[in-house]
Design a protein around this nucleic acid. Sequence first.
RNA 1: GCCCCCAUCGUCUAGUGGCCUAGGACACCACCCUUUCAAGGUGGCGGCACGGGUUCGAAUCCCGUUGGGGGUGCCA
Length: 468
Amino acid sequence: MSSGPRFRFAPSPTGFFHVGGARTALYNWALAKRLGGVFVLRIEDTDEARNKPEWTDGIIDALAWLGIHSDDPTFEGPYFQSEYAEAHLAAARRLFDAGAAYYCDLSSEQIQERAKAAGIGGYDGYSRDRGLGPGPGRVLRFRVPEGSTTISDLVRGEVVFDHSTIEDFVLLRSNGTPMFLLANVVDDMEMDISLVVRAEEHLPNTPKQQLLWQALGHQPPAWAHVPLLVNEQRKKLSKRRDKVAVEQYRAEGFLADAMVNYLMTLGWSPPGDREIVPWSMIEREFRLEDVNHSPAFFDVKKLTAFNGEYIRMMSIDDFIAACQPFLHSSDVPWPPDRFDASKFAAMASVVQSRASTLAEVPAVIDFIFLADPVVDEQAWAQTIAAPGAREVLADVTEAYRALPEWNVAALKDTLEMIGERHGLKKGKAQAPIRVAITGRTVGPPLFEALEVLGRDEVIRRLTMVASP
RNA sequence: GCCCCCAUCGUCUAGUGGCCUAGGACACCACCCUUUCAAGGUGGCGGCACGGGUUCGAAUCCCGUUGGGGGUGCCA
């Protein structure tokens, strides 16, 4: 058993894995690894019916994708908050018995009325000394003492909260079920959590939690509140407005290494002037004390750039392997039976430098596997209208028919020669051939494609387009 | 309303009182390379929110202003 710090990671139960949560998980993981601690996964929802197993599986799967494996000795869990229901209730009972909590029978309407009349914000502590016991329609509230609470935060330093600004918050609902705040603290105590790393949005509630830890007779954990991830409007990333599901980025062909690396550069940076760094270095260098205090914009453009770098760093075999799911997915543009693995392998290296996500791969070489690539009307009209274009097309078709050797060098030399004969530079000369073969004016290197396609198919496409 | 947090190029960041004429990356622009498009190379554009202090000296420390964000539920 490890004696190092115990971290807890508790993704919010929204049905998917949030990128902000992913970063927090990575922080916890890097720290647990370096400090010889434990990463505890907890599924937080006091309502058992909402602890959907498939969601938990999805989280574990997404964590594994990021390199946080549940079979690693550093990993513990998942634990389900709902399973600790008795401990939550027992804690509430202890608080009440000790006088640290009291019952209140005011409805929210009544509380609002009183607050309005008194000109204050929330609950005014009306039932503090009424000596009420438990009963229907009564909530259990925490008796916030006089004074102030100081939160020692590993990233922000000391933050002081005056108790006068904290109202007597609810511990148990009138139906007897525990509130999240209580459950959360009790779970942390049950699981011996010693370092809580979470997003900044939780900072204002931290004094309440610390008060609870103390009232329950425990030493509070160390806290670390990391900056929020925001959108271009500088608002907290949300499911509704923003693309925040890790699973979605994965499906769109982002590499786990790129995602992890990028996420880690938000609010923190590796030593030196390098941003693209291996996880081993991150694990060795990451410090909570070095984390920024301000929110960071999750920039998909920069993520994409990172991803391109990671794609180009792959060996050709790894690249081909990584492409497989995207080559055989159901929304591939070509008929599945026309796909040819060896043709793709022959094109792989030119594709690799052109793709910034794996999902872009099929579109780069779709013309190879399409029976008849759709020729863009406008592109064709413009290309063939250029001086000499029609002649080059005709001559090249003839020459390619008779070409003794079908390879990149021969294909290239022949076209260049014919282009020169018609006074065209290489760029102009290859244009009509490119459109005839690929259907577009832009694409991967032409001669490689011609070689892979083979003489018969090339001649077929060349003549097809020439005879309207 | 009240409480809390934050403030360096458009964005992510380096910077912890002199090494700062503020460094890097993404994006953008130009050029080079080049069969198109990429990739790669070179260069460019662009920032310490504002006002007061403290100090011989401030992006760095203090105060205020402004701006942004978060929290404030019988949600999690």
